[in-house]
Simulated assay, not measured.
Amino acid sequence: MGEKKRKEASKAEFIFGKKNYKWLFIGLAFIAVGFIIMAGGGSDDPNVFDPSIFHWRRIRLAPTLVLIGFGIQVYAILLNPDKEKKSDK
C-alpha cells in the first residue's frame, strides 16, 4: 500500500490543462507577430530620414496585436483547467 501512495504522489501533474497551453501559445504568437511587425523601418544612414517608421502598421496594428496577445495570455492563465476535465468525462 505504501508503494502505491508513493507512485501517486510522484505522478507529475501540470497546473494548466491542454486548453490553457493552447491559448498561451496563441497569445505568444500574437505578441511575437506584433513585435516583428513593429521592428524595422529605420534608415542605414543616420543623416537620412525614412518616413516608413510612421507607417500605420508600426503605429497602430503592431501595438494592437501585442495588447491582444497579452489579453489572450491573461485569459489563458485564468482559464479553469478543472472545468475542462469535467467536460471530457
Rank of each mutant, 00 (worst) to 15 (best):
M1W: 01
M1K: 10
G2A: 11
G2T: 09
G2Y: 03
G2F: 04
E3L: 02
E3Q: 08
E3P: 00
K4M: 11
K4Y: 11
K4T: 15
K5Q: 14
K5C: 09
K5A: 15
R6S: 11
R6E: 15
R6Q: 10
R6C: 03
K7V: 10
E8T: 05
E8P: 02
E8D: 14
A9L: 13
S10A: 05
K11W: 06
K11H: 09
A12L: 12
E13P: 02
F14A: 12
I15A: 14
F16K: 09
G17S: 12
G17L: 02
G17N: 02
G17T: 03
K18A: 10
K19S: 07
N20L: 06
Y21A: 00
Y21N: 01
K22M: 13
K22E: 10
L28Q: 11
F30D: 05
I31Q: 14
A32G: 05
A32N: 04
V33T: 15
F35Y: 15
I36R: 08
I36N: 06
M38W: 07
A39H: 12
G40Y: 13
G40P: 02
G40H: 08
G41V: 12
G41Y: 08
G41F: 05
G42A: 13
S43Q: 09
D44T: 11
V48D: 08
F49K: 07
F49R: 08
F49L: 12
S52T: 14
I53D: 03
F54R: 07
F54C: 06
F54E: 09
H55P: 00
H55R: 12
W56C: 03
W56A: 13
R57K: 05
R57T: 06
R58L: 09
R58E: 07
R60G: 12
R60A: 12
L61K: 00
L61S: 01
L61W: 01
A62D: 04
A62T: 04
P63N: 05
P63H: 03
P63D: 03
T64L: 13
T64P: 01
L65H: 02
V66C: 09
L67V: 15
L67I: 15
L67K: 09
G69R: 00
G69L: 00
G69P: 00
G71N: 07
G71E: 06
Q73A: 14
Y75W: 10
A76E: 02
A76W: 00
L79P: 00
L79A: 11
P81I: 04
D82C: 07
D82A: 12
D82K: 14
K83G: 05
K83F: 06
E84S: 01
E84A: 04
K85F: 07
K85M: 07
K85G: 01
K85V: 05
K86T: 11
S87M: 10
D88E: 15
